[in-house]
């Protein structure tokens, strides 16, 4: 997940209040914050919003500013409150005239190289059996898909669907690791 909007763009006291509202424990509150942001982005994306991340941050800004007012009276899961605010933000967004989009350069050599480098680092951090699952999982092609999955599943003593779930979980962890690695390498001069 990409980092949420930088703290200096929010008023520090608003942000602290927001975290305190989400959870009394600051660490758990930070996790909760990231969860809510991710969910907002996912929902906005599924609505076809091209600026999902931007609208999610806008939503969080608005909620942060209102926490002081609602904190005492609001009953229920704070995440649902975010959803309500997000609906308004999205509604406003749809009324805006569409902005011209920048042409993207996907095949950035530097980005690709960084990705490869981070992939190697993250693969080396995987446990041997996890790495084997990932290797086999990505080695399959259309034709060999069923046979290969059956073989791996039989080897590990799990069902096909369990194997897929395992592979996806490892893959998700790998994604997280790569993301962090890329962020760190991007931050370097």
């Amino acid at each position: 997940m990409l980092p949420a909007r930088k703290l200096n763009e929010l008023r520090q006291d608003d942000f602290d209040r927001l975290l305190a509202w989400l959870d009394s424990n600051r660490e758990r509150a930070a996790i909760r914050y990231e969860q809510i942001r991710w969910r907002l982005i996912a929902i906005l994306a599924s609505r076809g919003c091209a600026d999902a991340e931007e609208l999610a941050d806008e939503t969080i800004d608005r909620v942060s500013r209102r926490v002081a007012d609602i904190q005492a009276t609001y009953v229920g899961d704070p995440a649902i409150y975010f959803l309500g605010v997000m609906n308004n933000v999205h509604h406003e967004y749809l009324k805006r005239p569409p902005l011209p989009r920048l042409v993207e350069h996907r095949e950035d050599v530097e980005v690709t190289e960084r990705l490869h480098h981070c992939l190697e680092i993250c693969l080396s951090k995987l446990a041997p059996h996890a790495r084997e699952i990932i290797e086999q999982y990505y080695a399959e092609d259309k034709r060999a898909k069923i046979n290969l999955r059956k073989r791996i599943a039989a080897k590990l003593g799990v069902t096909n669907s369990n194997l897929r779930l395992r592979a996806l979980r490892i893959r998700a962890k790998l994604q997280q690791c790569i993301q962090q690695c890329v962020e760190v390498s991007e931050a370097r001069p």
Partner: peptide, 29 residues
């Protein structure tokens, strides 16, 4: 789907993993 940077990066990782492992295990397969 490809509307966030995170998802674009996710696709990049998927493509890289595919390229990396498919060719190496193709013969073994």
């Amino acid at each position: 789907f490809l509307v966030t940077d995170e998802r674009k990066q996710m696709l990049g990782v998927s493509e890289t993993l595919n390229r990396r492992f498919r060719s190496s295990v193709e013969s073994a397969s």
